[in-house]
Design a protein around this nucleic acid. Structure first.
Length: 204
DNA sequence: CCCTGATTCGC
DNA sequence: GCGAATCAGG
């Protein structure tokens, strides 16, 4: 792929919006994030600060630097770095999942109390309390080994299942490796997406 | 570990 | 000009 006018436009736009190089690369397709970054630099819009003037406040740059030419392993390396506190991570996406229940940060046990949504309205919840016990058990188990990530630490491949009460310090996200395509790890996918047919004939 | 951008340099 | 490899940091 080459940098056509169109592609450059997209690049500029997205970079301006604070999108990460990898996201831009993904969007464009056919290029790696490195290519994107390289282009960004060549276009001279590396730092997103762009504050007034900018002037010649360029980094001093007084280090010849070593290079990995052929086969060298530079031990130390000075780094000017004129990074700006640009805004980052406007990630607040995907939330169209069946509202997860907060049900682990407690003594546990066989008790499958009424799942209390921590203050959030849970629109569609057909059979929320009809979760397969086995799946629940698995969840409880996996949550013990949760990575306890905070909002900032979530990525596209970390389970975004919330654990605990958001209003408390006792709150974090699972963080385990997600299942391909899903926002949750295997265990949580299990309770998040119910086949809605799991236990049809529940005679009582 | 995952990610981010920055830089260098052979092509 | 391009971008992989590498570096540096979160």
């Amino acid at each position: 792929m080459s940098w056509t006018d169109e592609r450059v436009e997209i690049l500029k736009k997205m970079w301006g919006e604070g999108q990460s190089a990898s996201q831009i690369a993904k969007e464009l397709g056919g290029v790696t994030r490195n290519a994107v970054i390289g282009k960004v630099h060549r276009l001279g819009l590396s730092n997103r600060a762009g504050s007034g003037g900018g002037a010649g406040a360029a980094a001093p740059k007084a280090e010849p630097k070593t290079k990995p030419a052929a086969k060298a392993k530079p031990a130390v390396k000075a780094k000017p770095k004129a990074k700006s506190p640009a805004t980052e991570n406007p990630k607040a996406d995907e939330s169209a999942d069946p509202a997860p229940a907060t049900e682990s940060a407690r003594p546990a046990g066989p008790a499958r109390r009424a799942i209390i949504p921590a203050g959030q309205p849970l629109p569609p919840q057909p059979s929320a309390n009809e979760i397969d016990p086995a799946a629940l058990a698995k969840v409880n188990e996996v949550e013990k080994g949760a990575k306890k990530l905070n909002l900032m630490e979530l990525t596209e491949r970390t389970c975004k299942w919330p654990i605990g009460d958001p209003a408390t310090e006792e709150f974090w996200f699972c963080g385990l490796p997600v299942q391909q395509g899903k926002p949750y790890c295997e265990a949580h996918v299990g309770v998040a997406f119910q086949p809605m047919s799991s236990r049809r004939d529940r005679k009582r």
